[in-house]
């Protein structure tokens, strides 16, 4: 049986061998990180749900082919990144990255007030205003907890480019927060 102490890679192996509980554990372990990454990018919860299904369907489908040559998280967010890029490009017209709109989502409920502080709103708005590549690198680091090398591999960029994107993302966030202050 799957155990909380099992690594992601071990859980994937167990699932490939038929242990459904291992997939359940794996999903719950990474659910929020993947979903937030998708939601922050698309700015739409319904779209994030749809992409979430696509990502995890792919994980389940390719489990038997999964070779743990890299961290599971890297593989998982590679899938998520590609799904997100595809979606953002095709839905650019429909997408709204306005945090106000996110908070207006009826599914947010009364708890939405929890992040409706000025600081939280301003920061989410600032993230949504980052150039796409900077936002992607920033979210991969913040939500997926990936290293610069891993982000570079996922986004098919050089190490230096990725490092620059991360640096500029933070500078830009600071500037935007000053403007909101």
């Amino acid at each position: 049986m799957a155990d909380l102490a099992d690594s992601d890679e071990a859980l994937m192996k167990r699932y490939a061998q038929g242990d459904v509980g291992a997939f359940d554990l794996l999903y719950r372990r990474h659910e929020m990180r993947v979903w937030r990454y998708l939601e922050r990018h698309t700015g739409n919860r319904a779209t994030a749900d749809e992409l979430m299904q696509e990502v995890w369907f792919a994980v389940a489908r390719d489990a038997v082919r999964y070779v743990p040559s890299a961290r599971f998280t890297t593989w998982l967010f590679t899938i998520a990144h590609h799904r997100m890029i595809d979606s953002v490009r095709t839905r650019r017209q429909e997408s709204s990255l306005d945090p106000e709109a996110l908070l207006a989502d009826p599914r947010a409920g009364p708890l939405a007030a929890a992040i409706s502080t000025d600081q939280g709103k301003a920061l989410l708005r600032a993230v949504s205003q980052l150039p796409e590549e900077q936002r992607d690198a920033f979210l991969l680091q913040m939500e997926a907890d990936l290293s610069v090398e891993e982000i570079a591999a996922i986004t098919a960029s050089s190490f230096e480019t990725t490092k620059s994107r991360l640096r500029y993302a933070r500078i830009k966030l600071r500037e935007l927060l000053k403007e909101h202050a």
Binding site: W35, R36, D49, A60, A112, A114, I115, L123
Partner: peptide, 29 residues
Amino acid sequence: DYRRASAQDPGQPSESTRRTILAHAAALA
């Protein structure tokens, strides 16, 4: 600040999304 704001964000996948994913994975297994 970002981690704090993100953690406070009450947004999460819908229950139907969660059930669909887990059911699909179980069916594939």
